[in-house]
Protein backbone atom coordinates (compact mmCIF):
# COMPACT_ATOMS: atom_id res chain seq x y z
CA UNK A 1 0.00 0.00 0.00
CA UNK A 2 1.34 3.38 -0.97
CA UNK A 3 1.15 6.01 1.70
CA UNK A 4 -1.11 9.01 1.34
CA UNK A 5 1.77 11.40 1.88
CA UNK A 6 3.54 10.12 -1.23
CA UNK A 7 0.36 10.54 -3.24
CA UNK A 8 0.22 14.17 -2.14
CA UNK A 9 3.94 14.63 -2.81
CA UNK A 10 3.38 13.46 -6.38
CA UNK A 11 0.44 15.86 -6.63
CA UNK A 12 2.71 18.74 -5.61
CA UNK A 13 5.22 17.68 -8.27
CA UNK A 14 2.39 17.63 -10.77
CA UNK A 15 1.38 21.16 -9.87
CA UNK A 16 5.00 22.33 -10.19
CA UNK A 17 5.30 20.75 -13.62
CA UNK A 18 1.91 22.26 -14.44
CA UNK A 19 3.27 25.73 -13.58
CA UNK A 20 6.08 25.39 -16.13
CA UNK A 21 3.59 24.05 -18.66
CA UNK A 22 1.27 26.98 -17.95
CA UNK A 23 4.04 29.46 -18.75
CA UNK A 24 4.86 27.58 -21.94
CA UNK A 25 1.28 27.05 -23.04
CA UNK A 26 -0.02 30.57 -22.44
CA UNK A 27 2.79 32.03 -24.56
CA UNK A 28 2.11 29.46 -27.24
CA UNK A 29 -1.60 30.23 -27.09
CA UNK A 30 -0.97 33.99 -27.28
CA UNK A 31 1.05 33.61 -30.48
CA UNK A 32 -1.61 31.40 -32.00
CA UNK A 33 -4.39 33.74 -30.98
CA UNK A 34 -2.83 36.89 -32.42
CA UNK A 35 -0.84 35.67 -35.42
CA UNK A 36 -2.45 32.25 -36.12
CA UNK A 37 1.07 30.78 -36.19
CA UNK A 38 1.71 27.43 -34.53
CA UNK A 39 5.21 28.06 -33.25
CA UNK A 40 6.72 24.60 -33.00
CA UNK A 41 10.02 26.19 -31.95
CA UNK A 42 8.50 27.65 -28.79
CA UNK A 43 10.02 25.04 -26.49
CA UNK A 44 13.53 26.01 -27.61
CA UNK A 45 13.02 29.40 -25.96
CA UNK A 46 12.36 27.66 -22.64
CA UNK A 47 15.47 25.56 -23.06
CA UNK A 48 17.59 28.62 -23.92
CA UNK A 49 16.15 30.59 -20.98
CA UNK A 50 17.09 27.75 -18.65
CA UNK A 51 20.63 27.49 -20.01
CA UNK A 52 21.20 31.24 -19.79
CA UNK A 53 20.41 31.23 -16.08
CA UNK A 54 22.39 28.02 -15.58
CA UNK A 55 25.41 29.44 -17.37
CA UNK A 56 25.45 32.75 -15.54
CA UNK A 57 24.76 31.17 -12.15
CA UNK A 58 27.64 28.75 -12.57
CA UNK A 59 30.02 31.39 -13.96
CA UNK A 60 29.35 33.99 -11.28
CA UNK A 61 28.32 31.75 -8.40
CA UNK A 62 25.46 34.08 -7.59
CA UNK A 63 21.84 33.23 -6.87
CA UNK A 64 20.30 31.93 -10.13
CA UNK A 65 17.04 33.78 -9.53
CA UNK A 66 18.95 37.03 -10.09
CA UNK A 67 19.44 36.09 -13.73
CA UNK A 68 15.80 35.60 -14.63
CA UNK A 69 15.65 39.07 -16.29
CA UNK A 70 18.59 38.12 -18.52
CA UNK A 71 17.02 34.78 -19.42
CA UNK A 72 13.86 36.71 -20.29
CA UNK A 73 15.79 39.15 -22.46
CA UNK A 74 17.65 36.45 -24.40
CA UNK A 75 14.55 34.32 -24.96
CA UNK A 76 12.44 37.20 -26.17
CA UNK A 77 15.16 38.45 -28.53
CA UNK A 78 15.42 34.97 -30.06
CA UNK A 79 11.63 34.85 -30.29
CA UNK A 80 11.62 38.14 -32.21
CA UNK A 81 14.27 36.72 -34.53
CA UNK A 82 12.04 33.69 -35.15
CA UNK A 83 9.29 36.05 -36.17
CA UNK A 84 11.09 38.62 -38.25
CA UNK A 85 13.46 36.27 -40.10
CA UNK A 86 11.01 33.40 -40.36
CA UNK A 87 7.32 33.41 -39.69
CA UNK A 88 6.86 36.97 -40.93
CA UNK A 89 8.09 35.96 -44.39
CA UNK A 90 5.63 33.11 -44.82
CA UNK A 91 2.57 34.56 -43.08
CA UNK A 92 -0.64 32.95 -44.29
CA UNK A 93 1.17 30.15 -46.11
CA UNK A 94 0.40 26.46 -45.86
CA UNK A 95 0.54 25.18 -42.30
CA UNK A 96 3.01 22.48 -43.20
CA UNK A 97 5.58 25.08 -44.24
CA UNK A 98 5.18 26.84 -40.92
CA UNK A 99 5.80 23.56 -39.15
CA UNK A 100 8.98 22.87 -41.04
CA UNK A 101 10.25 26.40 -40.68
CA UNK A 102 9.91 25.92 -36.94
CA UNK A 103 11.57 22.52 -37.12
CA UNK A 104 14.45 24.15 -38.98
CA UNK A 105 14.79 26.65 -36.13
CA UNK A 106 14.57 23.80 -33.64
CA UNK A 107 17.43 21.90 -35.26
CA UNK A 108 19.62 25.01 -35.34
CA UNK A 109 18.98 26.14 -31.75
CA UNK A 110 19.05 22.66 -30.26
CA UNK A 111 22.36 21.72 -31.82
CA UNK A 112 23.95 25.08 -31.09
CA UNK A 113 23.00 24.47 -27.46
CA UNK A 114 24.75 21.10 -27.67
CA UNK A 115 27.84 22.80 -29.06
CA UNK A 116 27.85 25.35 -26.24
CA UNK A 117 26.77 23.30 -23.23
CA UNK A 118 27.27 19.65 -24.27
CA UNK A 119 24.58 16.98 -24.26
CA UNK A 120 24.70 16.41 -20.50
CA UNK A 121 21.72 16.95 -18.29
CA UNK A 122 22.25 19.98 -16.07
CA UNK A 123 20.64 21.35 -12.96
CA UNK A 124 20.84 25.02 -12.05
CA UNK A 125 22.51 25.31 -8.62
CA UNK A 126 20.13 26.89 -6.16
CA UNK A 127 21.09 28.12 -2.68
CA UNK A 128 17.73 26.89 -1.34
CA UNK A 129 18.15 23.31 -2.49
CA UNK A 130 17.98 21.65 0.91
CA UNK A 131 15.58 24.09 2.55
CA UNK A 132 12.01 23.10 3.27
CA UNK A 133 8.99 24.73 4.78
CA UNK A 134 6.50 22.51 6.58
CA UNK A 135 2.95 23.17 5.44
CA UNK A 136 0.20 21.08 7.04
CA UNK A 137 2.57 18.25 7.77
CA UNK A 138 4.23 18.20 4.33
CA UNK A 139 7.65 19.33 3.32
CA UNK A 140 7.56 21.93 0.60
CA UNK A 141 10.86 22.91 -0.97
CA UNK A 142 11.62 26.63 -1.04
CA UNK A 143 12.42 26.31 -4.75
CA UNK A 144 9.02 24.76 -5.35
CA UNK A 145 7.29 27.61 -3.54
CA UNK A 146 9.28 30.15 -5.55
CA UNK A 147 8.23 28.39 -8.76
CA UNK A 148 4.55 28.47 -7.84
CA UNK A 149 4.69 32.10 -6.68
CA UNK A 150 6.76 33.18 -9.68
CA UNK A 151 4.36 31.52 -12.11
CA UNK A 152 1.39 33.14 -10.42
CA UNK A 153 3.02 36.59 -10.60
CA UNK A 154 3.99 36.21 -14.25
CA UNK A 155 0.54 34.95 -15.23
CA UNK A 156 -1.18 37.80 -13.36
CA UNK A 157 1.10 40.34 -15.03
CA UNK A 158 0.29 38.71 -18.34
CA UNK A 159 -3.47 38.94 -17.72
CA UNK A 160 -3.05 42.58 -16.75
CA UNK A 161 -1.04 43.26 -19.89
CA UNK A 162 -3.59 41.62 -22.18
CA UNK A 163 -6.70 43.01 -20.52
CA UNK A 164 -5.74 46.48 -19.28
CA UNK A 165 -2.94 48.00 -21.31
CA UNK A 166 -3.23 49.71 -24.67
CA UNK A 167 -0.85 47.22 -26.30
CA UNK A 168 -2.88 44.32 -24.94
CA UNK A 169 -6.03 45.83 -26.37
CA UNK A 170 -4.40 46.19 -29.77
CA UNK A 171 -3.21 42.57 -29.61
CA UNK A 172 -6.74 41.44 -28.83
CA UNK A 173 -8.06 43.52 -31.70
CA UNK A 174 -5.61 41.88 -34.10
CA UNK A 175 -6.58 38.45 -32.82
CA UNK A 176 -10.26 39.16 -33.42
CA UNK A 177 -9.95 40.60 -36.89
CA UNK A 178 -6.64 41.26 -38.53
CA UNK A 179 -7.87 43.28 -41.50
CA UNK A 180 -10.18 45.45 -39.43
CA UNK A 181 -7.39 46.14 -36.93
CA UNK A 182 -5.14 47.15 -39.79
CA UNK A 183 -7.82 49.49 -41.12
CA UNK A 184 -8.23 51.36 -37.86
CA UNK A 185 -4.52 52.01 -37.81
CA UNK A 186 -3.00 49.25 -35.73
CA UNK A 187 0.54 48.46 -36.80
CA UNK A 188 -0.06 44.74 -37.18
CA UNK A 189 3.55 43.79 -37.77
CA UNK A 190 4.64 45.57 -34.61
CA UNK A 191 1.88 43.84 -32.63
CA UNK A 192 2.96 40.48 -34.00
CA UNK A 193 6.52 41.21 -32.96
CA UNK A 194 5.39 42.27 -29.50
CA UNK A 195 3.37 39.08 -29.20
CA UNK A 196 6.40 36.98 -29.99
CA UNK A 197 8.50 39.01 -27.54
CA UNK A 198 6.00 38.60 -24.70
CA UNK A 199 5.60 34.89 -25.25
CA UNK A 200 9.38 34.53 -25.49
CA UNK A 201 9.73 36.38 -22.19
CA UNK A 202 7.30 34.01 -20.49
CA UNK A 203 9.19 31.08 -21.93
CA UNK A 204 12.39 32.57 -20.51
CA UNK A 205 10.93 32.71 -17.00
CA UNK A 206 9.64 29.16 -17.43
CA UNK A 207 13.08 27.94 -18.47
CA UNK A 208 14.88 29.64 -15.60
CA UNK A 209 12.46 28.08 -13.07
CA UNK A 210 12.51 24.71 -14.82
CA UNK A 211 16.29 24.54 -14.62
CA UNK A 212 16.18 24.84 -10.85
CA UNK A 213 13.36 22.46 -9.97
CA UNK A 214 13.84 19.84 -12.69
CA UNK A 215 16.79 19.68 -15.08
CA UNK A 216 17.95 21.00 -18.42
CA UNK A 217 18.85 19.16 -21.56
CA UNK A 218 19.48 20.57 -25.05
CA UNK A 219 16.90 18.23 -26.58
CA UNK A 220 14.06 19.08 -24.21
CA UNK A 221 12.59 21.84 -26.39
CA UNK A 222 10.53 19.83 -28.84
CA UNK A 223 8.92 17.78 -26.08
CA UNK A 224 7.94 20.99 -24.28
CA UNK A 225 6.52 22.44 -27.49
CA UNK A 226 4.43 19.38 -28.10
CA UNK A 227 3.16 19.50 -24.53
CA UNK A 228 2.34 23.21 -24.87
CA UNK A 229 0.43 22.49 -28.06
CA UNK A 230 -1.37 19.55 -26.48
CA UNK A 231 -2.33 21.69 -23.49
CA UNK A 232 -3.62 24.50 -25.67
CA UNK A 233 -5.81 22.12 -27.66
CA UNK A 234 -6.86 20.35 -24.47
CA UNK A 235 -7.82 23.58 -22.73
CA UNK A 236 -9.42 25.15 -25.78
CA UNK A 237 -7.70 27.07 -28.57
CA UNK A 238 -7.44 30.78 -27.75
CA UNK A 239 -8.48 30.47 -24.11
CA UNK A 240 -5.71 31.53 -21.73
CA UNK A 241 -7.65 30.22 -18.74
CA UNK A 242 -8.03 26.90 -20.56
CA UNK A 243 -4.28 26.81 -21.13
CA UNK A 244 -3.54 27.33 -17.43
CA UNK A 245 -6.09 24.79 -16.19
CA UNK A 246 -5.09 22.30 -18.90
CA UNK A 247 -1.44 22.73 -17.95
CA UNK A 248 -2.10 21.87 -14.30
CA UNK A 249 -4.31 18.88 -15.19
CA UNK A 250 -1.82 17.41 -17.65
CA UNK A 251 1.12 18.13 -15.34
CA UNK A 252 -0.54 16.20 -12.53
CA UNK A 253 -1.59 13.38 -14.86
CA UNK A 254 1.95 13.05 -16.17
CA UNK A 255 3.53 12.92 -12.73
CA UNK A 256 1.10 10.23 -11.59
CA UNK A 257 1.76 8.29 -14.77
CA UNK A 258 5.50 8.46 -14.15
CA UNK A 259 5.02 7.40 -10.54
CA UNK A 260 2.68 4.47 -11.15
CA UNK A 261 3.56 3.29 -14.66
CA UNK A 262 7.11 4.48 -15.33
CA UNK A 263 8.78 7.36 -17.16
CA UNK A 264 8.07 6.19 -20.68
CA UNK A 265 4.33 6.60 -20.12
CA UNK A 266 4.41 10.29 -19.30
CA UNK A 267 3.68 11.53 -22.83
CA UNK A 268 1.39 8.62 -23.64
CA UNK A 269 -0.94 9.50 -20.76
CA UNK A 270 -1.06 13.17 -21.73
CA UNK A 271 -1.87 12.23 -25.31
CA UNK A 272 -4.48 9.69 -24.26
CA UNK A 273 -6.23 12.51 -22.37
CA UNK A 274 -5.90 14.71 -25.45
CA UNK A 275 -7.52 12.11 -27.73
CA UNK A 276 -10.26 11.61 -25.15
CA UNK A 277 -11.01 15.32 -25.06
CA UNK A 278 -10.89 15.58 -28.86
CA UNK A 279 -13.51 12.85 -29.11
CA UNK A 280 -15.78 14.10 -26.34
CA UNK A 281 -15.36 17.84 -26.73
CA UNK A 282 -13.45 18.83 -29.88
CA UNK A 283 -13.35 22.51 -28.95
CA UNK A 284 -11.39 21.77 -25.76
CA UNK A 285 -12.26 22.24 -22.09
CA UNK A 286 -12.81 25.98 -22.17
CA UNK A 287 -13.11 26.56 -25.90
CA UNK A 288 -16.19 28.38 -27.11
CA UNK A 289 -18.04 27.38 -30.25
CA UNK A 290 -17.17 24.48 -32.53
Amino acid sequence: MIGGSIIIQVLVWGIILGCIYALAASGFSLIFGVTKVINLAHGELIMIGGYVSFWLAVLTGLNPYLFIPLAVAVSSVISIVFYSLGFHKIMGAEKLREAFLAIGFTYVIENMAVLMWKEDTRVVPSPYRQQFIVVGGFNLGVDQLITIAGTAIVLLAFFFFIMKTKWGKMARAVSQNREAAMMIGVNVVRIDMLTFAVSGAMAGVGGALLGVILYLNPYMGLGLTIMAFTIVVFGGMGSILGAVVGAIILGIAQQYAVFFLGGEWSYAVAFALLILILVLRPQGLFGGGG
Binding site: I38, A99, F229, I275
Partner: peptide, 28 residues
Protein backbone atom coordinates in the same frame (compact mmCIF):
# COMPACT_ATOMS: atom_id res chain seq x y z
CA UNK B 1 -13.14 7.73 -37.15
CA UNK B 2 -11.71 9.53 -34.14
CA UNK B 3 -10.31 12.38 -36.19
CA UNK B 4 -13.00 12.79 -38.79
CA UNK B 5 -14.15 16.12 -37.39
CA UNK B 6 -10.64 17.49 -36.88
CA UNK B 7 -8.82 19.69 -39.36
CA UNK B 8 -5.33 20.87 -40.05
CA UNK B 9 -3.39 21.25 -36.81
CA UNK B 10 -5.85 19.37 -34.65
CA UNK B 11 -5.61 16.41 -36.95
CA UNK B 12 -1.82 16.61 -37.06
CA UNK B 13 -1.64 16.69 -33.28
CA UNK B 14 -4.10 13.82 -32.85
CA UNK B 15 -2.17 11.61 -35.28
CA UNK B 16 1.08 12.52 -33.56
CA UNK B 17 -0.50 11.63 -30.22
CA UNK B 18 -1.61 8.26 -31.60
CA UNK B 19 1.88 7.29 -32.72
CA UNK B 20 3.50 8.44 -29.47
CA UNK B 21 1.05 6.44 -27.38
CA UNK B 22 2.05 3.30 -29.26
CA UNK B 23 5.72 3.63 -28.30
CA UNK B 24 5.43 2.71 -24.59
CA UNK B 25 2.71 0.15 -25.34
CA UNK B 26 5.06 -1.85 -27.53
CA UNK B 27 7.97 -0.92 -25.30
CA UNK B 28 6.38 -2.63 -22.30
Amino acid sequence: VICVRLREWFLALATLAFSIILEPIFGS
